[in-house]
């Protein structure tokens, strides 16, 4: 029996599901080159290059950037640029913190017995089994209560008043990312033979050296995939950010959402295209790296 034999039903369904997955993305990208400003129907690519933008009603007749008119337009959009900066800042900081503390927790949960162990483990499962919005409004309530209390008690005013911002978004991101990092690293540690560490200690390495030279290099792939997962979760997050952001801490998903509720512009398509391109490149690079690793061993 050929193990790779699949029935026609499976093959047809697979093709259809892949079309379902990719059709919206293709349309999205296509429209980012649309000459219509209102972006309702596809009127064709923006044709010619010229010194300045020429409009005919809502149609772009020519642009210095040619078909990439909306991308040029986007790059001039200060709000988008600051949202992009916020998104990356939050993702970087939250990923670093959650990876470090999540890895520590994973080691503790996998290797040690301690009093709060079951509480720790349970609290890590909670974010997976409750909808994000529940956590989001919970954090919103807590922060607004605490900030409100501090502001009135210390009679803070003006800029001194505590308000939602990059800080609140980042700490909340860490809270929902840590469980994923911990679970990924824990899964990695499960298959980890303790005798590697015993061997290191047996050969004269103390606990810290053992961790630095043996344990960490061996769980590094797990830590990295945990970090990568955390990073993408942070980039992708809408709900938690929605309830914890404030003036000046708008992220890209929040910005796009705000825009979509008012107008639809090809700028959003251009933004999406850039995003997809980045994701595609990263995923491709990862696959190349991974297949290299596999062929090596």
């Amino acid at each position: 029996m050929n193990p790779f034999k699949r029935s026609p039903f499976v093959i047809i369904s697979t093709v259809l599901v892949y079309i379902f997955l990719y059709a919206p993305i293709v349309v999205l990208v296509l429209y980012s080159f649309n000459s219509s400003r209102v972006n309702i129907t596809f009127e064709g690519f923006i044709p010619t290059f010229s010194e300045r933008v020429v409009m005919d009603g809502s149609t772009v007749v020519s642009s210095p950037c040619g078909p990439f008119h909306w991308f040029c337009d986007l790059s001039k959009n200060r709000e988008v640029m600051s949202a992009a900066k916020n998104t990356l800042t939050i993702a970087f900081i939250a990923t670093i913190v959650s990876t470090i503390i999540g890895t520590m927790a994973a080691i503790a949960l996998q290797r040690y017995d301690f009093r709060l162990k079951s509480f720790s483990q349970l609290s890590l499962y909670v974010p997976i089994v409750i909808p994000e919005i529940v956590m989001g409004i919970g954090i919103l309530t807590l922060i607004s209560q605490v900030f409100g209390w501090v502001n009135t008690t210390f009679a803070l005013s003006g800029d001194a008043r505590l308000s939602m911002g990059l800080f609140t978004v980042t700490i909340s991101h860490i809270a929902f990312m840590v469980p994923f990092v911990t679970l990924v690293v824990q899964a990695r540690l499960q298959g980890f033979d303790k005798s590697f560490e015993e061997a290191a200690m047996d050969l004269g390495a103390n606990e810290w050296t053992t961790f630095r030279r043996v344990t960490f290099p061996m769980i590094l792939p797990g830590v990295l995939s945990g970090a990568l997962l955390a990073f993408t979760l942070s980039l992708d997050d809408f709900v938690i950010t929605f309830f914890t952001n404030g003036p000046g801490s708008t992220t890209l998903p929040i910005y796009v959402y705000g825009l979509l509720r008012r107008i639809i512009t090809p700028q959003v398509n251009a933004l999406s295209t850039v995003w997809i391109l980045i994701v595609f490149t990263v995923v491709l690079l990862l696959q190349i790296v991974q297949s290299r690793e596999q062929s090596k061993s």
Partner: peptide, 26 residues
């Protein structure tokens, strides 16, 4: 036991402040 508690402390503390307390507050 102390080693384990110490390692898990940051995460447990974080989850307590930003998950457990918010749920209780809700």
């Amino acid at each position: 036991s102390a080693q384990g508690t110490l390692l898990a402390l940051p995460t447990t503390f974080w989850m307590f402040i930003l998950l457990i307390i918010p749920l209780i507050l809700t």
